[in-house]
Design a binder for these strands. Structure first.
Length: 646
RNA sequence: GCUGUUGUAGCUCAGGGGUAGAGCACUUCCUUGGUAAGGAAGAGGUCGAGAGUUCAAUUCUCUUCAACAGCUCCA
């Protein structure tokens, strides 16, 4: 007999070799029907695997993340089975579960697959799922595994098997389909009730752009149709919040093919929003000892040779600008750090001067590959809310933590609560792409890891994500469709100070090297605003709204009063516009609602007679009448407290 | 950059080998209306660009440019 400890602490006894599914059955039949997989001693495995020793057991169902991903992984196998049935000879790459659903990379040998084909594959999957095929696990020797896929003629699987250790290889079979797979899987295909293949895309084999591009089919499955419908509705809703769509509708920004790809242009309303954000951060920075600086948009090529950026990015960047004079080359500024290093050198520094904090909203230009461009989140010209802190080694941690505070202040003020803090370190394998000594890197990595830990940030560590000159702490936020974007970033850098030979005179009257901290709480104004738009669905907090109040006279008779009210609001620093068209009040309200203007003032003869305003709140409706002073106080209170728009 | 999809009026989209249509927006006129669309008339497009096939191309073919999805990349 073995002891099985359940999540509630209860211990039950079973014969050795019992399966999680058996245990579920012993608890209740209803539970057994829902079990997708099991977590045994912390490891997720098939609910049908025998358990032979004492263990802790958690039964995984659809409500568990691991339960979902097990089902989606099994769904990928089901899709592969359907694909083999419909497209004999198809070769399979990998087919994992992802955050929302699964995909399988396939090689159709020159054939293409269309959206309509996906519907056929879906239908085949539904048909196969009804066979209630069991997912059965089998351990195989490397030789047998190689033989199986050699006969099948699937070179991708052979490549995968060659990288595996003999004795660790397992196959899973359901229906007529067998795949190389570590598992785990759901007990049988009947759990998969609702299926949607969402899209087709290309993906390089093993993520390497030198390799062949396979066809990737994405899909998602659910245990019932209702949940699938809800999911699809959610996606539709999310698309309505897309910043590219809202940016156009709310007249915030635009692009022009003639101006160039990835070069956003800000329309008046968007520019106003940008300026509000800029002023907000400037004020916070002035309060914490930053000094504003301004540097030019171009820099001599030698500046970037010194910094190392030219060697690293010169070939993949905008080409240098040449002058009529021979031999002079300038580059569009792709970052502000080298300029700031030279600013630091403008005067000798004492240890008493440090830290020096140079801040600049610096517009930079980077040649991003065509296919990477994406709305405002990935562009070729953008403005960083950049600053460089030059400090003594003993000040690094304190300064770093103050920057974390500033980033969190910015995020909190805008209601960004679901970020992840990512510690981006060097790749463990390939170190050739980084500059500087191991010693400096270790110092920098240590400073970041310790600071983040002391601030209690929930962090994830990613290797290979560091900048070439130093590690980073990145604040990642998701857009409407769940794509992750890096917003705030803080980087510790021991390398550029060395390359630029930055110095300060210490208390010992000797020269020392300062440490540099790069930081940008927004990341870039463009990307930050993109994510902000998607977060609030275009309903900006009042303090940021380009137009805060729309004044809606009921008829021409109230025009004069409307203008008087507008003048008073302007004097109170409230951004208001009058809708003086000869339209009915219902239409004016509808359009102001759709434009997501926070407040509407409906003004007719009644209001004019009593010197009042009838206030309407966007998406909330009529708030009744009040005096101008009351309305101004209402607005002011909301602005000062930076209340989020509900 | 790679794979796939798309490109028709300012916007959202329909159409289709015989040189184009709707709704909204826009202009003018009527209407002066009290909390999510008042009415009428008008104007607006070399159907992304180039080449080919054809008596004839916006429609078919090829090339190219751009957008979108994903991959790769991101100082």
């Amino acid at each position: 007999m073995i002891n099985i400890t359940l999540p509630d602490g209860a211990v039950r006894q079973y014969d050795a070799g019992v399966t999680a599914l058996d245990i579920a059955k012993s608890i209740s039949e209803g539970l057994a029907r829902k079990v997708l997989a099991a977590k045994v001693n912390g490891e997720v495995m098939d609910a049908t695997r025998p358990i032979t020793t004492d263990a802790t057991l958690q039964l995984l169902t659809w409500t568990d993340t691991d339960g979902k991903s097990t089902m989606w992984h099994s769904s990928a196998h089901l899709m592969a089975e359907a694909l083999e049935a419909l497209y004999p000879g198809v070769k399979l790459g990998i087919g994992p579960a992802i955050e929302n659903g699964f995909y399988y990379d396939i090689d159709l040998g020159g054939r293409t697959i269309t959206e309509e084909d996906l519907r056929k594959v879906e239908a085949k999957m539904v048909e196969l799922s009804k066979h209630n095929s069991i997912y059965s696990r089998k351990e195989v020797s490397k030789a047998d595994a190689l033989q199986y896929f050699t006969e099948k003629g699937d070179e991708y699987k052979l490549e995968l098997i060659n990288d595996l250790q003999d004795g660790t290889i397992t196959f899973y079979t359901q229906g007529g389909f067998t795949d190389l797979c570590r598992g785990p899987h759901i007990p049988n295909t009947s759990f998969i009730k609702a299926i949607k293949l969402t899209n087709i895309a290309g993906a390089y084999w093993r993520g390497n752009e030198k390799n062949k591009m396979l066809t990737r089919i994405y899909g998602i499955t659910f245990p019932n149709q209702k949940e699938l419908d809800e999911y699809l509705t959610l996606i539709e809703e999310a698309k309505k919040r897309d910043h590219r769509k809202l940016g156009k509708e709310l007249e915030l920004f635009t692009f022009s093919e003639k101006v160039g790809l990835g070069l956003p242009m800000w329309l008046p309303k968007g520019a106003l929003l940008r300026e509000r954000l800029q002023r907000f951060l400037q004020e916070a920075q002035m309060a914490t000892g930053y000094l504003p600086v301004v540097t030019p948009h171009i820099g001599n090529k030698n500046l970037y040779v010194t910094s190392g950026h030219y060697e690293k990015y010169g070939q993949d960047s905008f080409r240098p600008i040449t002058t009529p004079e021979e031999g002079e080359e300038f580059m569009l500024k792709p970052m502000n750090c080298p300029h700031h290093c030279e600013l630091y050198k403008a005067s000798p520094k004492s240890y008493k001067d440090l830290p020096v904090r140079f801040a600049e909203f610096g517009t930079v230009y980077r040649y991003e590959q065509h296919g990477e461009l994406h709305g405002l989140t990935r562009v070729r010209g953008f403005t960083q809310d950049d600053a460089h802190l030059f400090c003594r080694p003993d000040q690094v941690k304190e300064e770093f933590m103050k920057v974390i505070d500033l980033v969190l202040y910015v995020f909190n003020s805008l209601g960004f609560s679901n970020y992840t803090a990512q510690v981006s370190l060097r790749s463990k394998e390939d170190r050739s792409k980084y500059i500087g000594t191991d010693e400096n890197w270790e110092l920098a990595e240590k400073a970041i890891i310790e600071s983040a830990a002391e601030k209690g940030l929930p962090t994830v560590v990613e290797y290979g994500e560091a900048a070439f000159y130093g590690p980073k702490l990145d604040f990642m936020v998701k857009d409407a469709l769940g794509r992750k974007w890096q917003l705030g970033t803080i980087q510790v850098d021991y390398n550029l100070p060395e390359r630029f030979e930055l110095e300060y005179i210490g208390a010992d009257n000797a020269k020392h090297r300062p440490v540099m901290i790069h930081r940008a709480p927004f990341g870039s104004l463009e990307r930050f605003i993109a994510v902000l738009i998607e977060h609030c669905g275009g309903k900006f907090p009042l303090w940021l709204a380009p137009t805060q109040v729309k004044i809606l006279p009921i008829s021409d008779k109230s025009q004069e009063y409307a203008e008087k009210v507008a003048a008073q609001l302007k004097a109170a620093d409230i951004r208001a516009e009058i809708d003086d068209r000869s339209e009915k009040i219902g239409k004016k309200i509808r359009e102001a609602e759709l434009a997501k203007i926070p407040y509407m003032l409906v003004l007719g003869e009644k209001e004019a007679a009593d010197n009042l305003v009838a206030v309407r709140r966007q998406s909330k409706g009529d708030l009744g009448t009040m005096t101008m002073d009351q309305f101004k106080a209402l607005v002011n209170e909301e602005v000062v407290n930076r209340k989020p728009f509900e």
